[in-house]
C-alpha cells in the first residue's frame, strides 16, 4: 500500500452533491484488467464532449470547457473539494484509482459513501470529512483566491490554510496508522493467522454446512 504523510497542494472545487462512482469513472473503462491508466478518463462524461472508449488517446478529444477540471486555474490540483455523499453507488475501486492516477491525493467533502471511503485508504489517498459550514468557506476561498492551496498533515490531523487558519479533522486510528506507514493490510491480517485458523476450525465444526463444496 502507498504511504500518505503530508501534502501541500492546489485545490479544485467540484460543486456537486451525490457524485457517484459511475460519474467518476464510467463503466466502459472498467473492462481494463490493470490498476493504472484511468486518470485520462476521470469524470469522462463531464470532461469531454465526445464518447470515450478505453485505450483511446485523450489528447485530441474535444473538452467540455464548462467542466471545472478543464479550467487552467485548476491544472495540477491534488486536492479535490466537493459536497455531500461523494463516491456513492457502485463499489468500483476504479474510482479511487482514477482520481489518484489523475493526481488527487486528498478529497475534502461533507460526507462520503462508505465503500468509496474505505477504498481510498487502500490506495494512498486521504478522504477528509469536514462540516458543511467549513466546506462552504473553502469553496468561497477557492473561488476568491486563484491558486488557492492547502497543506494537509496526516500525523497531526490538521489542514493549514494560506491565511494561517488550522482546521483539524477526525480519522480512525487504524486507517491513519496504515496510511502513514504504507502498511500491507493483508500482511497485517496474516500476522493473526493462528487466531484465524483456530476460529475457522471451531466455526466450521459448529456450522458444518458451511464446508459444502460448490462444484
Amino acid at each position: 500500500m502507498q504511504k500518505f504523510i503530508s501534502l501541500n497542494g492546489l485545490v479544485a472545487p467540484l460543486d456537486r452533491s451525490n457524485v457517484d462512482t459511475d460519474a467518476i469513472i464510467p463503466k466502459q473503462f472498467l473492462k481494463s484488467i490493470s490498476r493504472t491508466g484511468f486518470g485520462p478518463y476521470l469524470f469522462d462524461e463531464w470532461r469531454y464532449l465526445d464518447h470515450g472508449e478505453p485505450g483511446q488517446d485523450c489528447s485530441n478529444r474535444p473538452l467540455n470547457n464548462d467542466f471545472v477540471l478543464n479550467n487552467d486555474r485548476f491544472k495540477g490540483a491534488s486536492i479535490l473539494l466537493t459536497r455531500a455523499n461523494f463516491g456513492c453507488g457502485s463499489s468500483r475501486e476504479h474510482a479511487p484509482w482514477a482520481l489518484h492516477d489523475y493526481g488527487f491525493q486528498v478529497i475534502l467533502a461533507e460526507s462520503f459513501a462508505d465503500i468509496f471511503y474505505s477504498n481510498c485508504f487502500k490506495n494512498g489517498m486521504l478522504p477528509i470529512v469536514l462540516d458543511a459550514h467549513k466546506i462552504e468557506e473553502l469553496f468561497q476561498a477557492t473561488e476568491d483566491n486563484p491558486g488557492f492551496t492547502l497543506s494537509v498533515d496526516l500525523e497531526f490531523q490538521q489542514i493549514l490554510t494560506p491565511s494561517g487558519e488550522k482546521i483539524s479533522f477526525d480519522l480512525d486510528s487504524y486507517r491513519k496508522f496504515c496510511l502513514l506507514n504504507g502498511l500491507d493490510e493483508i500482511g497485517q491480517t496474516l500476522s493473526h493467522q493462528k487466531e484465524i485458523a483456530a476460529f475457522e476450525r471451531n466455526h466450521l465444526e459448529k456450522h458444518s454446512w458451511l464446508n459444502q463444496e460448490v462444484r
Binding site: 463499489s91 479511487p96 465503500i115 487502500k122 480512525d172 497485517q188 491480517t189 484465524i196 475457522e200
Partner: peptide
C-alpha cells in the same frame, strides 16, 4: 455487503476483513 478490489484480494488471502461495526 459490497467491497472494493483490494478487499477482494484481502478476503481471498486471509478469509477475513478488517471492519468497523456499523
Amino acid at each position: 455487503f459490497g467491497i472494493g478490489t483490494s478487499e477482494v484480494e484481502h478476503v481471498m488471502a486471509t478469509q477475513c476483513l478488517v471492519q468497523e461495526k456499523s
